[in-house]
């Protein structure tokens, strides 16, 4: 872990103008190539290998994009893992393999996720409940209802919906394109629209933003709705990829913690107001190449969990350690 930490710190001191995302992507590439060469699997450094690598980024990348909005505005969303599970299960339950149900099922999932996002937003922005507790609780409520109503696999998605996750367009897998489109859209919203600028303002200095006439509460609500919608898209993708959803798909993927980690690794401040989509994409690439390297080295599943925990801490501390004050 210290191996990861030093290059970032050094590069930042040496080339102060190199943006964080570039450093993180370079690090990701370094790790991936080194692992491939060391384990003698140089064939991983090919178009096919890289496509596989990109494919791994899709679900976490989508969640991370949404999480970026929540964190930028100074909040956080811990309910995404439960929402992913709920959406994946709901989609396969409603479709039951029937292609004519694809649109209604997707509509129901989107409606549900917008509702969850709105509830999160209201609890955090209007009621003033600590976002960690509020979203943790909505996640718990969702997960409890889900596990109580679906104890086993029920139904599967329509074959034509499943095909979406495996198709290629111009040689690029459709899911990767989906992530790219969403990333572009998120970048556009944050960097080029008034709403994006207001999000940064509200996250950086809520009181100042309020005095400047921004409706901070509404912005926080909007960010939460976006975060939930992104989790919904990730859940739909996972359902398509795996043919049917299980009630634990989100929790087992640790999407809550990992989405926060990739956002922070990408240089977005946990306290909000600074950062962006590019960093998040760089963060997810780093995680995917680490994951791929573990697989190349054949790391045992439990040990992988240990390493993930350590990496999350190490990654966040690279940024946090420069903090002057005390954190809780």
């Amino acid at each position: 872990m210290s191996v990861n930490a030093t290059p970032v710190a050094m590069t930042r001191r040496g080339f102060r103008d190199v943006p964080v995302p570039v450093v993180v992507i370079a690090l990701a590439a370094l790790i991936y190539v080194t692992a491939a060469i060391v384990t003698g699997q140089a064939n991983q450094i090919s178009a096919a290998g890289l496509t596989g690598l990109l494919q791994r980024t899709v679900a976490l990348g989508l969640v991370g994009l949404g999480q970026t909005f929540a964190i930028l505005v100074g909040s956080i969303d811990l309910s995404v893992a439960a929402l992913i599970s709920t959406v994946a299960v709901l989609a396969s339950y409603l479709m039951q393999g029937d292609p004519s149900m694809i649109v209604p099922a997707i509509a129901a999932c989107v409606a549900l996720s917008l509702g969850v996002g709105a509830i999160n937003g209201v609890l955090v922005a209007y009621w003033g409940i600590n976002p960690l507790i509020a979203t943790l609780s909505t996640g718990l409520i969702l997960q409890g209802l889900l596990s109580a109503s679906f104890t086993f696999l029920s139904g599967s998605v329509a074959p034509s919906f499943q095909a979406l996750a495996y198709q290629n367009l111009l040689g690029v897998p459709l899911p990767v394109l989906l992530l790219a489109v969403f990333a572009l859209a998120a970048w556009f919203v944050l960097a080029k629209t008034r709403f994006g600028a207001h999000l940064y303002a509200a996250g950086g200095n809520p009181d100042g933003a309020k005095l400047a006439g921004l409706r901070v509460q509404r912005l926080v609500l909007g960010a939460h709705v976006i975060a939930s919608f992104a989790a919904c898209v990730a859940g739909l993708y996972l359902a398509a990829r795996l043919q049917s959803g299980t009630p634990w798909i989100g929790r087992d993927g640790i999407y809550d913690l990992e989405s926060i980690a990739i956002v922070v690794i990408g240089g977005t401040l946990l306290s909000g107001g600074k950062g962006g989509v590019l960093g998040t994409i760089a963060g997810v690439l780093l995680f995917a190449s680490l994951d791929a390297s573990f697989n190349m080295f054949g790391v045992d599943a439990f040990l992988k969990q240990v390493l993930r925990g350590a990496i999350v801490i190490a990654a966040v501390s690279v940024y946090a350690v420069r903090n002057r004050g005390h954190v809780a």
Partner: peptide, 14 residues
């Protein structure tokens, strides 16, 4: 200076 919620989530995994 890692916020405790992330630090302890990390040690939880670990």
């Amino acid at each position: 200076k890692v916020p405790s919620i992330i630090a302890t989530l990390g040690t939880m995994l670990l």
